[in-house]
Nucleic acid binder design. Sequence first.
RNA 1: GCUCGAAUGGUGGAAUGGUAGACACGAGGGACUUAAAAUCCCUUGGCCAUAACAGGCUGUGCGGGUUCGAGUCCCGCUUCGAGCACCA
Length: 944
Amino acid sequence: MEYDFRSIEKKWQKNWIENETYHVREDASKPKFYVLNMFPYPSGAGLHVGHPLGYIASDIYARYKRQCGYNVLNPMGYDAYGLPAEQYAIQTGQHPAKTTNDNISRYRSQLDKIGFSFDWDREVRTCEPGYYHWTQWAFQKMFASYYDKALEKACPIAELIDRFNANGTEGINAACSSELDFTADQWKSMSEKEKSDILMNYRIAYQGETMVNWCPQLGTVLANDEVVEGLSVRGGFPVEQKKMRQWCLRVSAYAQRLLDGLDTIDWSESIKETQRNWIGRSEGTEMVFKVKDSDIEFTIFTTRADTIFGVTFMVLAPESELVAQLTTKDQKQAVAEYLAWTKKRTERERISDRKVTGVFSGSYAINPLTGESIPVWISDYVLAGYGTGAIMAVPAHDSRDYAFARHFGLEIRPLIEGADVSEQSFDAKEGIMTNSPRPGQGRPGGLELNGLTVKEAIAATKKYVKENKLGKVKVNYKLRDAIFSRQRYWGEPFPVYYNNGIPCMIPEECLPLMLPDITDYKPTETGEPPLGHATEWAFDAANKKVVSKSLIDGKTVFPLELNTMPGFAGSSAYYLRYMDPHNGNALLSENAANYWQNVDLYLGGSEHATGHLIYSRFWNKFLFDLGISKVEEPFKKLINQGMIQGRSNFVYRDKTTGKFISYGLLKDYDTTPIHVDVNIVSADVLDIEAFRKWRPEYENAEFVLEDGKYVCGWAVEKMSKSMFNVVNPDVIIENFGADTLRLYEMFLGPLEQSKPWDTNGIDGCHRFLKKAWSLFYDREDNLLVDSSEPSKEALKSINKLIKKITGDVEAFSYNTAVSAFMICVNELYTLKCHSAAVLKDLVALLSPFTPHVAEELWQLLGCTGSVCDAAWPQYNEDVLKEDSVTYSISFNGKTRFTMDFPADMAQADIQAAVLANEKAQSYIDGKPIRKVIVVPKKIVNVVI
RNA sequence: GCUCGAAUGGUGGAAUGGUAGACACGAGGGACUUAAAAUCCCUUGGCCAUAACAGGCUGUGCGGGUUCGAGUCCCGCUUCGAGCACCA
């Protein structure tokens, strides 16, 4: 009987649905294991062969764990809110819900063909009210919380209000936007609006007037991770800095915990490093500088307190509030011109064109240690958003300060022995300090840095600054709060209404606040987000329901928020919802949370390192503080599967004749390469007829061939429609079957490595399955399986395989596992082994990789139940033991001859036997022996 | 500029410091077949050598080092990829 993958796969996929094979329930009698993939955004283009890579890898592991006796949770869902659906709606007027649903159906049918062990009963979609109910709920909880820095956790904002009522801000140590100072009486006398504003300063979800990344083309603000080099990640449009009132999440409050948590999880070093970079912790000193002839003082942040004696100027960020205060009359004109100029520059220009620019403010600051007057400059190389927006410049030991000093002719004063600063600054934090001015020359004694190393000098200066109250030790983070509102339609609505400008949460029992239908998805004429078009978009607080905007009276009926939440809102806690997806009363039950805990294995692309993977960790830590999530880190182990790149093919058109020139003849012609659809190219040879039919303009194409063929060029590029290199898994499955696809995707190379897709190699994997099949049936349809005792060789082969596959699956080395299968099946084939005992183990091992054919073969072997519940085979160490081992006898690094010894022979005996050997003696030639090295099971090395 | 990671045949890729190139693709040769497909067998890093069997030399980006022994460890480069980048 032929290996008929089409009917086998169809049969078992149906069987799995009917028997609910992959449904999973909490089961206290079994240990749990939670496998998760980053859920996909269902794009209109459908799946290409790159998408399932991670799903296959995790499915193999999930099935393996199940066979090892674990209760495995392996869910799947859709990240369904997003910009493409909305842009499509703007163009066509189609409701995003419709296109999203269509795309999901297409994804689902494609996924179903691959044979995953997903529990589809637990599917979630971020755009469904039953799901975003809990996204909105979490937002409300964040609104109702503040971060207590002393307790290092989120606490109810009501507790903060109680403390304000009792003692004002005294003793408050909370994460906030700006440090406030008021008494209990002051607090009590404030208006509702004032109180609301004050509390916004502390809430974890807060509304703030902040600099945001505004993208005019997209008509929305973007989070920092959605902007790269001043351009939007989606669309590549310019992004400018703009001050806007926006919802934000106080992610920065969790900076230290996000950093510390990295040491407790099993993620790749590179992702952890990326996150450490993004969090950007730096320990330094804040120092207060007085302004000469003035009462004004200002604070700077530095990590190089030791260089305080090398400060020759100060620099303010142009946006700093100090600029106006410190600009003198004489400099007013120049400063105003400079500010106007910097304001015009976009972030992108600033980054790409690093001209040294700046202007003198006219004021001088006083060095707190030496009393020296230092000019204060203004320059856009200092960022308003980091530290205090003001720096002390030490041109000798900071390259940016150096460039500035050189440009404006300011003094450069080296402080480290042997540092040559004639060409460039000496930035390294090493060396011995020198050049400290002597006490008495305008400065008090107490701080002596000469002779200390840089590290010692930093510590000494910090101590001195602290003791003399010149400033304080401070930790700064680059991590910014996440901007949480988007001016879009297709996202979660905020469960917020406005009572006289005060944002209020709609009552919890009114959740979810459903996204209203609209017909126009563009912003309104007055610049409001698309939700401004909604008519039923007001909240009746008395009757607790959503009503028409026309009823707004400002007393009981209020306008609702028009912004929606960003993409990461719905994707930040979806792994928790999978644990209990149908729960209408809570995000998840205590029971489910306690059983499933967190994700044991998470697979996804590394492109989410500074987005989803930070937000999710933040979100989970917040829910952990609330007691909802039971573990502080959401994803115990993370594997980043590599991208599957496309392998594009090209044809080459002669620039003058318009003929298409075969690849090997290119050097004789002047040609333009043109992408050609890879589906009409086979092994780089073009199907000329198909090419002529491909596009009308090629109907009469003429070719210059080599050996009668047209050979195409190729290149590895991103897999995308525009490159005509997209390979659809449906086509592969139709031709070779899902099991072959699964095997081949794993065989392509190491999981974490990016690699190009090349359909040509798939034959090998398909042949392997046919060969495995032929162990069960011959060509005349006779079932070959017998109950004979397996031969010693066959036993050894299968035991070797069990050991190898177990190790490889644990290590996610699937490509070598597939190779091992091929070797074993070849051996069994050569040995003509049809013993049911051996084949049973083979099928059980194959099951995670090729579940359909494994089920079929399992049945042929007369086994009952699904193979996915077959116990994972254990290998027998005794079978693997060799009787004798062949050693290479080697002198002076060269192998001379071989000898066989019993496997359990002691090393010393082997040495003695080798030395007693005549042949060996002849090599040594009676010379004294320096060393005899026995490498276990391999080599005896004799050194003379 | 800083921080990681990588470099092995025509291709994808294997190798706990121990016979480099497993496995697969591609290529070449052969068997079966009227023929093709399918299947099976052999060869396949390079160079030299032989009637043939043997055999020899060389070889993991480059240059050094440690070691009886290095693709693997150490030092110094080159190239490519990823992340961060006026973060004081």
